[in-house]
Amino acid sequence: MPLSKKILRLLCLGTVLFLLGRAPDKAYASSADSSSAEALAHYTMGLVHDLYESTEEAVAEYEKALESDPAHYLIHFKLASNYARLGMYPEAIAELKTTVRLNTEDLQAHYLLALIYSTQKQYDLASAEYELILKSLSRTEPENVEVFGYLGQLYYSQKKYDKAIEQFEKVMQLEPKNAEVMFLLGSLYLETQQKPVAVDLFLKSIEIDPEHDGSLNSLGYIYAEDEARLDEALDLVKRAVTLDPDNGAYLDSLGWVYYKKGMYTEALESLQKADTLLKDAIICDHLGDVYYKLNEVDKAKQYWKLSLDLRPEQTAVVEKLKQLNKNTTADSSKTR
């Protein structure tokens, strides 16, 4: 049962007296004048309302606290937190910006800003806040591999591959036998067109952890793309699928290895299953290729079009469709 406002205010007053007499807040330690005492009273009352999830009442108290002490960063932060709970995001953002202006070291404010920006689908702004937080932590905790890992993943998601590589290389220095980091680094080197380095990292990852499905799949797919060591590629990808049988990407790799080996029926079966699990442009493209080899031209055309719907910039798929249309037109002319 919630306390009455009268009891809350008595409790608040007692807390204020205790804080002023025993453990004054840093922001108020320099003076004990009436304005700072009044601000602290309203601030503490806001904290009490927070405890009882009385958000609107807490907002009212924090706003009164700011009237007496507008330079207290913590009041701005608490007010912002409650604005956010009420869905008042523009007001929350404004208060958080004031918070970080008054206290540049306040990472909590940056974190809440990141959450709000994410809620508002302002992902670039959210990423900038996360980057600031992680960079700060990487300086204060230079041996915390999780921080470097999170920062690396952030850069990866932003397609800032060189920066991501830099972070994961730092993790490798601290944990030289981390199979997962080797896999992530290998994936990044693939993105930057450094295939030999990627292959070496995938091999090392598998050597450390023979059941690392990501490395098994990636290495097998590379071998298939290069049309080299196809038997080994098949073994690698089969091992990955065994470890994660409902992974659409792994089933796509398996289908692609079968395709490269000329085993089109097996390729079709694997790719169809992949398509039910994951709607992906590459899977659709591969299905189109398989159907074309099986002389099912209409289905090939259908899946190549689906692939372009998912990723329109694929020039290779565009060319396949153009060639298919040319062949179809030529065949029609011959039959007339």
Rank of each mutant, 00 (worst) to 15 (best):
M1V: 11
P2F: 13
K6V: 09
I7P: 00
L13C: 02
F18E: 04
K26M: 09
A27I: 06
A29H: 05
S30P: 01
D33R: 05
S35M: 06
S36D: 10
A41Y: 14
Y43C: 02
V48N: 11
L51Y: 13
S54K: 15
E61R: 05
L66G: 09
L66E: 09
L74T: 12
N82F: 06
Y83D: 14
L86A: 12
Y89A: 08
I93V: 12
I93K: 05
E95K: 10
L96A: 08
T99A: 10
T99S: 04
V100I: 15
E105M: 03
H110G: 01
Y111M: 07
A114H: 02
L115K: 14
L115I: 10
I116W: 09
T119V: 07
Q120W: 04
K121E: 15
Q122L: 13
Y123V: 02
S127P: 01
E129A: 03
Y130R: 03
L132P: 00
K135S: 14
L137A: 05
E141I: 04
V145Q: 13
G149W: 05
Q153T: 08
K159M: 03
K163C: 08
K163S: 13
A164G: 12
F168I: 11
V171R: 15
M172P: 02
Q173A: 15
N178D: 15
F183N: 06
G186E: 13
T192E: 08
P196D: 15
V199W: 03
D200L: 10
D200F: 03
F202Q: 03
S205D: 04
D209V: 00
E211L: 08
D213G: 01
S215I: 13
L216P: 00
L216D: 00
N217H: 15
S218Q: 12
L219W: 11
A228H: 10
E232V: 09
A233I: 09
D235G: 01
V237Q: 01
D244C: 03
D244G: 00
D246V: 00
G248M: 05
L254P: 10
L254R: 05
Y258V: 07
M263D: 13
E269L: 06
L271P: 08
Q272D: 12
K273Y: 13
H286S: 09
V290Y: 08
Y291E: 11
K293T: 07
D298Y: 09
L306G: 01
S307Y: 01
L308T: 07
Q314D: 09
T315S: 14
V318N: 08
L321V: 15
Q323T: 13
N325F: 08
T328I: 14
D331R: 05
S332M: 10
